[in-house]
Each structure stands twice: as C-alpha cells, then as structure tokens.
Design a protein around this nucleic acid. Sequence first.
DNA 1: CATATATATTCCTTATAATACATTTCATGA
DNA 2: TCATGAAATGTATTATAAGGAATATATATG
Lengths: 104, 104
Amino acid sequence: MKPSIHEAIRARRLALGLSQIEAARRSGIQQRQVSTFERGGDVTLSTLLKLAQALDVELLPVPREDTAKLESLLKAKRAPAPSTSPPSLLDRYQVKDDEEPSNG
Amino acid sequence: MKPSIHEAIRARRLALGLSQIEAARRSGIQQRQVSTFERGGDVTLSTLLKLAQALDVELLPVPREDTAKLESLLKAKRAPAPSTSPPSLLDRYQVKDDEEPSNG
DNA sequence: CATATATATTCCTTATAATACATTTCATGA
DNA sequence: TCATGAAATGTATTATAAGGAATATATATG
C-alpha cells in the first residue's frame, strides 16, 4: 500500500523526530498548515515545497512507468542511521526499523 | 542540472505530445493553470495532482539522501529518438518515438 | 489528578488560487 | 499575408489557502 504524499511527509517528519511546531518553524509556515496538510488538506505547492525542504525531502515527479523500479529501491534502503541526538521529549515518535508508532 | 518540478511536468506533457488545452481537459483544470504552473507559478497541491495524474506522473517525496541514486536511474532511461517521421502539427514536441498522442 | 507537549481546530482578515471566457502573442505552414 | 493551433495574458468574480494567535483536545508522564 503506497502512502499518499500527505502520509509520506508526515512519516518523514516523524522519522526526523520533529514536532509540527518545529517543522513549521523551520519551514516558515504555520503549524496549522502542517497539521492540515498531513491530514489530507490542500495547500499551495509553494507551502508544500517549504515544508519538504525543511524535512530534507524532494518532490520528484516520476512517470508511472518508472515508479515500480524506484519504489522497490526506496523500500530496500530502509536502514536508519544511528541517532546522533539524545532521546528527548519527542522520543515516542522516533520511528524504529521494525516498530510502528502507536497508531490509534 | 536538475529541472524544477515545473519544468519536469512541462517536459512530461510535451513528451506525451499533449497541448496545454488537452492536458487541462484531461485533468479537469484550466489551461490557464497549466500555463501558470509550467511557468513557475503557484498552484494548489490538488490542482497539481490532477495535472500529474493526467500526465501519468506520480509525485514521489524522496529523502535527499536517496535522490542521487534515483536520479541516476531516471537519467539512464533517456534515449533520444531519431527524428525520421513526417512532421505533424505537434511534431516539434514529440520526444518519444513509440508513443502516440491522444488517439482515442 | 496535574503537568507538559503535541496536535487539531476555531476566529477573523488578507492574499491569492480557481473559474469562466475572451483576447493577444507566437510559431508554423499554406 | 493569411490561417491555424498553441500558449500566454486580461478581466471580473468566487473560492479558499495563508497569516496571526488563541484554544481545545489528545496523550503520555509524574
């Protein structure tokens, strides 16, 4: 099941251990936009690009004919680097390799 | 030299041999939005997604750490076609050799 | 429960994207 | 030149995202 772009961005943010507030601060958008977007709401491309940049993510337009190959490549690469920051308040969101964040 | 998302979408449209009007019609947006976007203007994500879908393109959020690998893969796939076919109206845009524009 | 943090949602205002044509500009070919 | 098709732009209106700040709601912890 392929995650939507919304879900993917959210996952990325959590993987980086960032709160919406911090992501918003870094990208210069409002926390509200982060929340709205992650929940599937609409934002302008410029807003999304700011957020993506703050999350060190690129929005790559890929022809459908190529997606399969790329996705298998991405999936195969799930090997998170050792965390350089100490576990902090956001620790509960740290996405582990084989563990899902409690998703109610 | 990495093309912007705007340029990439435009290139894709041209590769499919579609006019802005046809792309707009297929995606249910206005020709104006196609033009605006391709020229770097801002659109909502929903609008962009409609256009992308009409162009059979997916917007893949890729962590920067992974982009290099993926891009080389995509780049490897470019194979310019010899232009020996009779020039048609859209011929200046035909980038692919085995792809028909709207034929039905 | 109380506290702290994160996230979702509300208010109002402003900015701007989307819509619906119409028109102009540009390039090509008869 | 004129005709044709594509693309860029004009105008007016409507819809909605963004900005700013606050508040309400979860959720985990002490």
